[in-house]
Amino acid sequence: MPNKQASRIGTAELQRLAAAGRWHVIETVANAKAGHIGGPLSAMDLLVSLYFNELRIDPQQPQDPARDRFILSKGHCAIGLYAVLALRGYFPIEELATFDQGGSRLQGHPDMKLTPGVDSSSGSLGQGLSAGAGMAMAAKQLGAGFHTWVMLGDGELEEGMVWEAVHTARRFKLDNLTAVIDLNGLQQYGWPVTEDGDRFDRSNPWAGVNLEGVFSSFGWNVVSIDGHDFDEIQTAFDHVRAGRGSGKPTVILANTVKGKGISFTEGTYKWHNGVATPEQLAVAAAELGQTLEGEAK
């Protein structure tokens, strides 16, 4: 079994890592002149918690067959995953500077054939949970002990293929599968509207829908948390472990803020993607406790 943390990292260190991850996201995208910001920032606390306190992994053996699997179904948020993989030791942090360049291992969407630590290529929304269900089913058939985790966006839940996987996972008793939903309540595009002069309604795609009830009705274990509270995140992970052997997959409904951690990116669809100016980078560095070179103060 791959190495797991000998002891859990405390909240202060998780906060430090998340701040560093957020800085690497906005700095890297600024240098690349393109990329996504809002989703990687909303998911950062969840990703840091997974990679430093939960996943059974060994960065020195990224292809170990006994490792836990992680799929970033919302693949456009790849830079958030790359930042955490670099912090965890899968490749040098300096390599983030090659993001989205020709010949780089760090493309705009995750590529399992290029990037150490990436277990599934993704980018076409809605497909990740089906791939994760397949991995979990294979683990069951092989008698393997690894757990499969899939992170999805709330806008992505509008894809019909997601719900086919939700239905199938319970029928095959995939209690070794966990979905983490980044419920940041904003999407780049939504249902068409015309009355306000804007082409799209970008508000919460699941407003008025009882997602807890929906997943429960499909037979899943459901945990709802504040996706920026490290204690609640860890409690959710504990719940996942307690559910192994129940025959039920688990979903973590993580309520988050799009663009979390930087004042000018928080809570606005306009920073779904975008390139920070030098002045904005200076603001972000100050708020995240970083220097403009990305080193902690």
Rank of each mutant, 00 (worst) to 15 (best):
Y189T: 14
T235G: 12
I71T: 08
S246H: 07
Q187M: 13
P278Y: 02
E266I: 03
G75C: 13
T115K: 12
G185I: 02
T268N: 08
G153L: 05
Q5W: 11
L81R: 12
G289S: 06
F70N: 01
K260Y: 12
Y269R: 10
A66D: 15
V48P: 00
S124K: 06
V180W: 04
L72V: 12
D45V: 03
A144H: 13
K297W: 06
F146P: 03
A86F: 04
V29A: 13
I225L: 04
K140C: 08
A20S: 13
G102L: 09
Q234K: 14
Q141E: 09
L211W: 09
G208N: 08
L41S: 01
W149F: 15
Q127E: 01
F99S: 02
P59W: 05
A97M: 04
A32I: 04
Q15T: 13
S216L: 04
F264W: 06
D238K: 06
G103N: 14
S216D: 10
V166H: 11
T277I: 09
A179T: 11
L281V: 00
Q101I: 03
P65C: 13
D64T: 00
I9G: 00
V166T: 14
E94F: 09
A32E: 03
V275W: 00
Q60C: 06
V150L: 09
N184E: 09
T98M: 07
S203Y: 03
G145C: 04
A32W: 07
G155E: 05
C77Q: 13
G143H: 01
L129D: 10
V29H: 01
V240Y: 10
D100Q: 11
A282E: 14
S73A: 15
A276W: 06
G247N: 09
D238C: 05
L186E: 01
A133S: 15
A32Q: 05
R105W: 08
H167I: 06
G208A: 08
L186V: 05
A139T: 08
A242Q: 15
T277G: 07
V257D: 04
E195A: 14
A207D: 12
